[in-house]
Design a protein around this nucleic acid. Structure first.
Lengths: 210, 210
DNA sequence: CAAACAAATACATATTCATGCTATTGCGGC
DNA sequence: GCCGCAATAGCATGAATATGTATTTGTTTG
C-alpha cells in the first residue's frame, strides 16, 4: 500500500485527488492539508511514502515546504504539482530535492502511474518539464558562448593567471622573459576589456574560459 | 509519418528495431547504420525526425556522433540508447543536446511512445535516467560546501574584489578608509589561505562563495 | 610579395598591492 | 568589569602590476 500525503489549497482539487487515490487499489491518502505550514511535523506523524505538493499555496509555498521537509526527512518522495511549467520553480524544486514535477493537467490515470513510479525510486516528470530540465542542464554547461579570440599563448598565460601565478612565476613557467608576459597580459586585457589581473580572472570564470 | 534514423552496431538489435518501427503505424525507418562515422551527412540526406543513437559503438561513439550532428543540425531529435545508466555518459549526452535517454531494456511498446514523445518536443527518459538527472542537478547546485568563516564585512569586501574593484574603489564604495580595506583584505587572505587578489577571486568562484 | 599578426624582448614610470606593526572603538559573553 | 573580536584607521616599505612605446623574428594569408 502506497501511503500518500497531500498538500493542496483548493478544496475541490484536494477532495478530487483524495477520492481518486483512495479509490485505487494499492494507494491510500493518509492525510490531506490545505497548506504546508506544519509539513515537517505532519510528515513525521503520518509517515507517507509519497507527498503530492502543490507549489502555489497561501502561507508556506510548496518550494519552502519542500525545503522544510527535506531538513528532517531525506527519504520521503516528493512530487511537485503545478499549473505552470515555470522555469524558476522547476529549478528551485529540483535543487531542493524534489523527486518529480507534474502539471496539474496530468490525467488521473497517469497520475497514479507517476505516484507509483516515484514510490519505486523513479523521477516522474510531465513531458514539458522534462524538456525544460534537459534544456536547463545543457544551457548551464554549454555557455562557452563568448569567444574573445585569444591566441594559444594568451590562453596559456590566462590559465596561469587564474591559477594565481605572478608575472615572474609565469615567465619562469613558460620559459619566457617577464616583459613578454607583460605583453601577453596587455593583449589579454584589451581582448577581455578589463584592466586588472583580478578582473581577468573573474571574467575567465564567468565566461567559462577555464 | 515519423521518420526514424537508426545507429546501432549490433546487427540483431538493428534489425529488430527496424522491424519493430517499420511494423508500426505512423513510424518509418529511413535508414539504419552500424556506426555514425558519417552521421552529419546521413542526417542531411535522410532528413529524419528522430534519431536513435546507440552510445557504445566502435569507431565514432554515440556521444561524439551526437556532437557532430549537432554541429550541423539543431532541430532533429536525438534519443540516446544504452545498456548502462552510466553517470558520465548521461551527463555528456545531455550537455550536447540529446533529447532523451533510454535504456536498451526499454520494452518495445514503450519505445514507440518514447519516439513519439521526442518527436513532439518532449524529453523521454528511462526512469532510472531521470532520477540520475535530477540528482546531478541537485548535487551541482548544493555544493556550497566550504565555509571560510568570513565576517559580513569581509564578505562585502570580497564581493567587491570579485567585481574587479581596486582598494581605492572599495574604500569609497564602502565609505571607509583605504587602510581599513587593507585590514579586511589581509584578514580575508588569511582565512582563504591565499596571498593575492586574483587568487582570492579565483577561490571565491571555485568555492561558489559568490 | 606585402600586409597582418603572433610571439618574443626591452625600458620607463606611475599606480596598486602585500605585509608588518600599532591603535581605538564598540559589542557580546563569562 | 575584563576578554576577545570585528571594524575602523594609520604608517612604512618593498614587490607587483598597469601602461606606453618600440624592435625583431617568424607565419599566415590575401
Amino acid at each position: 500500500m502506497v501511503k500518500v500525503l497531500l498538500y493542496e489549497d483548493n478544496p475541490q482539487l484536494r477532495e478530487g485527488l483524495s477520492m481518486l487515490i483512495n479509490g485505487s487499489d494499492g494507494f491510500e491518502v493518509v492525510a490531506a492539508f490545505k497548506n504546508c505550514d506544519n509539513a515537517p511535523d505532519e510528515v513525521d506523524i503520518y509517515r507517507p511514502d509519497v507527498i503530492l505538493m502543490d507549489i502555489d499555496m497561501p502561507g508556506t509555498n510548496g518550494i519552502q515546504g519542500l525545503k522544510n521537509i527535506r531538513e528532517v526527512n531525506e527519504k520521503v518522495k516528493v512530487l511537485m504539482l503545478t499549473v505552470f511549467d515555470d522555469n524558476k520553480n522547476v529549478f528551485e524544486a529540483i535543487k531542493n530535492g524534489a523527486n518529480g514535477y507534474l502539471l496539474k493537467k496530468t490525467p488521473p490515470s497517469k497520475l497514479l502511474d507517476y505516484i507509483e513510479e516515484a514510490n519505486s525510486g523513479g523521477a516522474p516528470m510531465s513531458s514539458s518539464i522534462a524538456t525544460q530540465v534537459l534544456r536547463m542542464f545543457s544551457d548551464m554547461n554549454n555557455i562557452k558562448g563568448v569567444d574573445y579570440d585569444l591566441s594559444e599563448r594568451e590562453k596559456e598565460v590566462l590559465q596561469l593567471l587564474v591559477n594565481g601565478y605572478s608575472y615572474k612565476m609565469i615567465a619562469s613557467e613558460m620559459f619566457i622573459a617577464i616583459d613578454t608576459v607583460r605583453s601577453h597580459i596587455k593583449k589579454i586585457y584589451e581582448k577581455l576589456h578589463v584592466n586588472s589581473k583580478s578582473e581577468a580572472v573573474a571574467k575567465a570564470f564567468k565566461d567559462k574560459l577555464v
